[in-house]
Amino acid sequence: MRQTGGAMAADTPDPDVLVDRARRGDERAFAHLLRLHQNRVYDLLVRMLGDRAEAEDVAQEVFVAFHRALPAFRGDSRVSTWLFRIAKNHCLNRLKYRGRRGEGQHVELDALDRAGAEGPETPERTLERAQVNERVQAAIAALPEEQRLVLVLRDIEDLSYEEIAAVLEQPEGTVKSRLHRARLALARRLAGAGEENAS
């Protein structure tokens, strides 16, 4: 089953109740919301910024901003949508700041991408998977910001088109065409990289 709004287990409290409690200053409710959403927000930021330390730094800013804005949350969108929107704004600001400083795109291929998925595997299989993950991350990093954002939200974070449109504050049609261009560019790049490696 496709999950579009955060990993919600059966015993997880209702998100609306959690938000309401957090708004009234209940720190445990806020901590619960944090645990529910922190890794998805962080993964988006790592994919966008290509740097784990910087992504963690921005993730902190995102959750502090979320906490500060809680009293203004009207509940007309999902918490995850709202959080991803805050994350998107912070992330684009950080990229703009980098652009002003003349820094390019960071492509930090970290231990996770090198290690690949968990589980018992032969060293050859682990190495092969790790190389593929590195190529995929590099291909994502090479996309223009707007395409990268929509691709990560859809194909990694698994958001619905409707939710992505709300996060990006763009019409669904724009989201769909941008995503299609991103996917084509990524497929071309990965196919090209495969041929380079084979030759």
Binding site: N39, R40, Y42, D43, V46, R52, A55, D110, L112, D113, A115, G116, A117, E118, V132, N133, V136, Q137, A139, I140, L151, D155, I156, R183, L186, A187, L190, A191
Partner: peptide
């Protein structure tokens, strides 16, 4: 390509 993207390990 899309199958590979969807399989990348998530950062925690």
């Amino acid at each position: 390509a899309l199958a590979l993207v969807r399989e990348v390990p998530r950062h925690r």
